[in-house]
Simulated assay, not measured.
Amino acid sequence: MTTLPFDTQNIHWNTLEGLAHVAYHICAVDEEKRIVDILFKFDANSQIALHRHGAAYITLVLQGELRIYRANGELKEVRPVGSYVSTLAGGEPHREGGGDQDVIAFFSNRNVDGPIYEILDDDLNIIAVFGIPEFKALWEAQPTTTIKAAE
């Protein structure tokens, strides 16, 4: 089911080479509180890289439906727009993606103490790690968007 579009006119979407079907916008990196907040946009009818979460996180689906797939490709869960889920660190390796429209979801990574995401190959070998230092560097390099104040 198509949902109302989330207005992203003031959001600059970023991508990383080698990570297909996903764009991100880092909202905040707070080293002291150990929090990294990110908006993700997952392509419709696609799956992102296999990964594992190393920090507790909260998700809020803002547009579309977030589909979660097991490592073998089996659909595990569908979170419709408005879904708010709080999850502990760990869990099984999985992929995420959108349903019939691009999905936009807010991820708030909490109590970060090490890797936030471990990107895996199909044999579950770690091929990339993203923690606070990596997200802080991406956040600092991220273009800023100027929002005009109401007149």
Results as ranks from 00 to 15, higher is better:
L4Y: 03
P5Q: 13
Q9E: 13
N10P: 00
N10C: 02
N10L: 06
I11W: 14
H12S: 14
W13T: 04
T15F: 00
L16Y: 03
L16M: 10
L16T: 05
E17H: 01
G18W: 03
G18T: 01
G18K: 03
L19M: 11
H21Y: 15
V22S: 10
V22K: 07
Y24V: 02
H25Q: 04
C27Q: 12
A28W: 11
V29Y: 13
V29I: 06
D30A: 00
E31G: 02
E32L: 06
V36P: 04
V36T: 12
I38Q: 11
L39D: 06
F42P: 00
D43L: 12
D43I: 11
A44H: 09
N45G: 02
S46D: 05
Q47R: 15
Q47K: 15
A49Q: 13
A49C: 05
L50W: 07
L50C: 03
H51K: 06
H51P: 00
R52L: 13
R52A: 15
R52N: 09
H53D: 14
H53P: 10
H53T: 12
G54K: 13
A55D: 01
A56K: 01
T59H: 00
V61I: 05
V61G: 02
L62S: 03
Q63V: 01
G64M: 13
E65K: 08
I68T: 08
Y69E: 01
A71H: 14
N72D: 15
G73E: 07
L75W: 15
K76S: 14
K76F: 10
E77G: 00
E77V: 02
E77Q: 14
P80A: 11
G82Y: 06
S83L: 05
Y84G: 02
S86I: 05
T87L: 13
T87G: 03
A89W: 03
G90E: 08
H94I: 07
R95D: 12
R95F: 10
R95A: 08
E96V: 12
E96F: 01
G97N: 06
G98M: 12
D100F: 08
D100C: 06
D102P: 14
D102V: 11
V103H: 03
I104R: 07
A105E: 12
A105P: 00
F106H: 10
F106Y: 11
F106I: 00
F106L: 15
F107V: 03
F107I: 04
S108L: 08
N109P: 00
R110L: 11
R110K: 14
V112I: 10
V112E: 04
D113H: 10
G114S: 05
G114V: 08
Y117M: 03
I119C: 00
I119F: 14
D122H: 14
D122R: 05
L124D: 11
I126E: 07
A128M: 00
V129T: 15
V129H: 05
F130N: 07
F130E: 08
F130Y: 15
I132M: 09
P133Q: 01
E134I: 03
E134S: 01
F135S: 11
K136Y: 09
A137H: 04
A137D: 11
A137Y: 05
W139M: 10
A141S: 13
Q142R: 12
P143M: 07
P143L: 09
P143Y: 06
T144V: 09
T144S: 13
T144K: 15
I147R: 13
K148D: 09
A149Q: 11
A149T: 12
E151M: 06
